[in-house]
Write a protein that binds this DNA or RNA. Structure first.
Lengths: 202, 202
DNA sequence: ATCATTTCCGGACACGTTGTCCGGACAGAG
DNA sequence: CTCTGTCCGGACAACGTGTCCGGAAATGAT
């Protein structure tokens, strides 16, 4: 028999992807990740509970993979702002913030899942802390560059970067519920105004 | 027999307070609230497991009361700022922020407990969201008053209030680890600068 | 001082979840 | 065709939960 079009590993990855997507969807529908039983998770994913344990060590394992999957999106979209931070261009800032907001909007459930899991599972929390640390660090560098270029006010680079990143993170979780999607632009405007006022506006 | 010096209700409240304090202490020592069994919780508090259920509906009930307690602390210390928000006085703002930071510093474990519980227990999350909404609402009113008095910039009151409150919450929770207590003043300075730049500085 | 009430304890119970293991079915790989 | 990987369903022990009970102890009222 010739190797079928879908290899074993492909199907394996596809299934695990299905489980991740199902978990994300459940959280998006308002379920609490911590209150989800493996039974329910497996059922929605179309596999049996025992099969779940073949693919995942436990629920925390799932959350850790979700964390990694989500990290790239945020980091990638943040690059736009970091690279133009030394130009005091409010329009560019607004565009960059809008892009970040979009990531939270589309993958918001994944972030919520990760946050909920991090509160319970220390290894997930470590994974998340590492991500935030990287974001903060690169933002700090951007601020230092902007200050060197004379485009930014003399704020404390390290602390300001941390506060702004945590602010964006929290807003992404708490204020971008799909329910009131009308206000998303307004939220992006407000974030832009706060960052602009803090970093650039003389 | 004359009523003893401590009435029933007094002792009841005292015991429940002891349980709250014990839980807070356990979290302060690095325990995860979600992984704490009622057995352990009761044991540390010096009561039996069955007695715990006489005083608390469940672990979530304990967390909800903790939530009310800590947010009440926040609300009380925030009053100073809300009442003077229409005066563009940076020193007053800095003092108010410092007071808020102090609450997070001293009751940090309680906030951690609430966060951990909210991640697992939807009712705790609801309680927290509701109480935060109150903080946001009063901040929004303060902004509207400040704008009416001509002291503040024309920001969106509702969204800006929400973003700033969530920013403070996240910073208090993530950036005020007792380990590096030296940076707390710097954090308060940065928060003050951000809020000042956003709301007041022309 | 006596008596009723409240409070606490320890133990039991049914229930749900977890993580592990197994035998058997089935399809893809060699 | 045979072997191997994958999945299922079911079982299991272990643990935590929330509820209930009987009895002991402390407390308040008479």
């Amino acid at each position: 028999m010739p190797p079928s079009r879908t290899t074993r590993k492909q199907r394996r990855d596809a299934m695990e992807q299905r489980v991740l997507a199902a978990a994300e969807q459940l959280v998006r529908d308002g379920e609490n990740f911590g209150e989800l039983s493996v039974e329910r998770l497996a059922g929605v994913s179309g596999i049996s509970r025992s099969t779940f344990y073949v693919h995942f060590e436990d629920k925390g394992d799932l959350a850790r993979r979700m964390t990694k999957a989500v990290v790239a999106d945020l980091e990638e979209v943040s690059t736009d702002w970091w690279s133009t931070a030394d130009q005091a261009d409010r329009g560019q800032l607004r565009t960059a913030i809008g892009a970040i907001i979009d990531v939270y909007r589309h993958r918001g459930a994944a972030f919520t899942l990760v946050s909920q899991a991090a509160a319970v599972d220390e290894s997930v929390a470590d994974e998340l802390r590492g991500l935030m640390r990287r974001l903060i660090d690169r933002t700090r560098q951007a601020i230092e560059l902007g200050q060197a270029a004379g485009a930014m006010r003399p704020v404390e680079p390290r602390e300001t970067a941390a506060v702004l990143i945590w602010m964006i993170e929290r807003v992404g979780h708490q204020m971008l519920r799909p329910s009131d999607s009308g206000g998303h632009d307004k939220v992006a405007d407000v974030l832009t105004d706060i960052i602009w006022s803090t970093l650039y506006r003389v």
